[in-house]
Structures are given as structure tokens and as C-alpha cells.
Design a protein around this nucleic acid. Structure first.
Length: 345
DNA sequence: AAACCGGGGCC
DNA sequence: GGCCCAGGTTT
């Protein structure tokens, strides 16, 4: 794209965005911490899902300090149901760095902001361009899809090194006077017009500058190869209640899947048993729910039960008896909430 | 470079 | 059922 074309492309994109942009909560502010929270929530998560979480989160943690000093359990509870819980823990770690190292001011340059936990190349560019007006690239899945079509880039976006191609393209194309609208415009275009399947090219504000539209193969781009294999796990979950009416729960390890989230006793079917793993003898279980829970690279096939404890020994460290009221306060993954809702019908 | 890390919506 | 979503970290 030559200089004049680049100017026209910028103008068409920025004017379309300022005219057509959705009214979203995080678009009513340029406060860097608030933009940061929104960008982390939006990682791999749809706008409509994020909106209620963002509003509740900002109400509870309005400033970097309030989040920095919050108990992790409460933070995870606010994040419950969003998934990718390490995002929340990394966000708090990053915010603590800002409070302690940068006097609570989010850094305004890529070198420093990129050092913060949970802030990668995309999030760094998003905060810098949206909150600070810096001409920095913010390349996400939307941007790669849009630019693969506009510029007819046919490299495999599943390969990590390909992102660099798009970052260099944005470095060249970005409107230095409207960095926020330009970067958000690319993403909004990807979300509303330049969609993965059946792009609405006839409504596209930059159609005149799109090589794929000219070539008629917009729907075939981007090129993405990677396919992943799914692991399967068969599990039994047992809600165990003791004579005092309390329920047995355990905290998951601080690393790995669903780190630091709480769950009811869970065993791999045929490989373990409740008595041995948890030190609790139980009466005859009654069936609750049978269902499937799909993660990114793993599927849990869950049979869930309710049982009464008949004999209890010494519990291991992350295992405790909690009342119904206490359990309601614990951050739990969705499959456990699903089972818990059966107990409280 | 590949694997890991949630959950939901859409086709 | 597979794909995608305002990705980052770990190995």
C-alpha cells in the first residue's frame, strides 16, 4: 500500500469505527487500569460474556490499589465462570508490581509494561494505544484475520512467528493521530464485518482497499493449520455430607488446571476411591447428574453423587468440612457449580 | 514450536 | 462436533 492509499485506509477505518462502534463499558474510559482489566478479561473471551464481569469487577476493585490488596479467594470468586483463572492471578500480580514499583501508575512504554505479569505483546499494545494514545501495534485474532484479507497475507497464523508479520504491518498502517480508534477499529471490524465465516464484505468500510475482496477469496483467509487432539477423562464426583450437615471440599493445587479453585471429592473412575483418597467412609451414594464438561484440550465425563459420611479420619491439608454458607463463598469451576446446584434444589 | 490453560456461542 | 473468541505462560 502506498502512502496515499494508507492515508485513505486509515481514514475509512477510523471514521467507520467512530460512527459504528458498540457502546461498551470500557469504551467510556481511558483509565489505564480499567483498560487493562478489560483487555485481560477479553483474552479468548467474547465481548457479551465479559460485560457483566467487567462491571462487577470495576465496582468491587475500582483502583489498582483495591485489587492489589484484595484476598485471592475473593478475586477468584469475582472471576468464577470466566475461565482461564490464571488470568486473574496474573492480573493481580501485575497490578501489585505497578503499585509497588511504579507508584500505582501503569507504565506508558512497551519495555516496562511488558514486564508486568500477564501482559504480553497484545495487551501491552492495547493499553498503550487505547489508554495512552501511543502508536503501538495490538495484534489479536481479529487483527490477523482482517489484515490477512486486506493485505492478502497467506502465512499460517497458527505459527507463533507469523504474528510478527502482522505487527510490522500495523506498525506501518497505524494512524499516529488516532491510535485508539485505529486499533479498536481493526478489532471491531473483525467482530462485526470481517467475521471468520461469511464476511459481510458489501458492508465493509475498507472494501476498496482489500486485496482479498478484489480476488474474491476473503472467506478462505486466514490460513490456519493447527488442529488439536482431545484427551478424555472419566471422573466420579461425590458430594459428601457429615453428621453436622457440613460438606467435604478440597482446594486444587496452586498450579495447573483450575489452580486454587475448590471442588468436591473427585476420583478417576476405576483408578481411585473416596475412602482411600480422602480418608472418609461413605454410605451408599445416590445419583445426582451425569454430564460432560469440555475444556480446550480435555473433556471430563462426570458422574456425580451425594453420600453421607459414616466414618471420618484425619483430613489431608487442602480438604475441609464447610457449611453450605461457606461453600457459597468459595470459587468453584463451572462443573462443580452445576453439581452444587443439584444439592440446593 | 508446542503444550497448557475455561467456558460459551455459533455453524 | 469442530471452530473461534480483544492471549499469555511454561516447557
Amino acid at each position: 500500500m502506498n502512502y496515499e492509499y494508507t492515508q485513505q485506509f486509515r481514514q475509512a477505518l477510523v471514521e467507520w469505527f467512530n460512527r459504528e462502534k458498540r457502546d461498551l463499558p470500557w469504551r467510556r474510559t481511558t483509565e489505564p487500569y480499567h483498560i487493562w482489566v478489560s483487555e485481560v478479561m477479553l483474552q479468548q473471551t467474547r465481548v457479551d460474556t465479559v460485560i457483566p464481569y467487567y462491571n462487577r469487577f470495576i465496582e468491587r476493585f475500582p483502583t489498582a490499589e483495591t485489587l492489589a490488596y484484595a484476598p485471592e479467594q475473593e478475586l477468584l470468586k469475582m472471576w468464577e465462570g470466566l475461565g482461564y483463572y490464571s488470568r486473574a492471578r496474573n492480573l493481580q500480580a501485575g497490578v501489585r508490581e505497578v503499585v509497588e514499583t511504579y507508584h500505582s501508575v501503569v507504565p506508558d512504554n512497551r519495555a516496562d509494561i511488558s514486564k508486568l505479569k500477564g501482559v504480553g505483546p497484545y495487551t501491552a499494545g492495547a493499553i498503550l494505544s487505547i489508554a495512552y494514545g501511543k502508536p503501538e501495534h495490538a495484534v489479536d485474532g481479529n487483527v490477523m484475520r482482517v489484515l490477512s484479507r486486506v493485505l492478502h497475507i497467506k502465512e499460517d497464523i497458527a505459527l507463533p512467528k507469523t504474528r510478527k508479520v502482522f505487527e510490522e504491518a500495523v506498525d506501518y498502517l497505524i494512524d499516529p493521530d488516532n491510535t485508539s480508534s485505529f486499533n479498536q477499529g481493526l478489532m471491531e471490524l473483525g467482530a462485526l464485518i470481517c467475521t471468520p465465516t461469511s464476511p459481510k464484505c458489501l458492508l465493509c468500510p475498507v472494501r476498496d482497499y482489500c486485496i482479498a475482496f478484489e480476488a474474491g477469496d476473503a472467506a478462505e483467509l486466514p490460513i490456519k493449520t493447527k488442529k488439536v487432539k482431545m484427551k478424555q477423562l472419566e471422573l466420579d464426583v461425590v458430594v459428601v455430607q457429615n453428621a453436622e450437615g457440613r460438606y467435604l471440599v478440597e482446594k486444587r493445587p496452586e498450579e495447573g488446571l483450575l489452580a486454587n479453585m475448590w471442588q468436591f471429592p473427585i476420583i478417576e473412575r476405576g483408578q481411585e476411591n473416596i475412602a482411600e483418597k480422602y480418608g472418609v467412609e461413605i454410605g451408599t451414594p445416590t445419583s445426582l447428574l451425569t454430564f460432560k464438561h469440555v475444556f480446550s484440550h480435555l473433556t471430563w465425563h462426570i458422574d456425580s453423587y451425594y453420600a453421607v459420611a459414616t466414618e471420618t479420619g484425619i483430613l489431608a491439608d487442602p480438604v475441609e468440612w464447610f457449611t453450605k454458607e461457606q461453600i457459597t463463598q468459595l470459587p468453584m469451576p463451572v462443573p462443580m457449580l452445576k453439581i452444587w446446584s443439584q444439592i440446593n434444589v
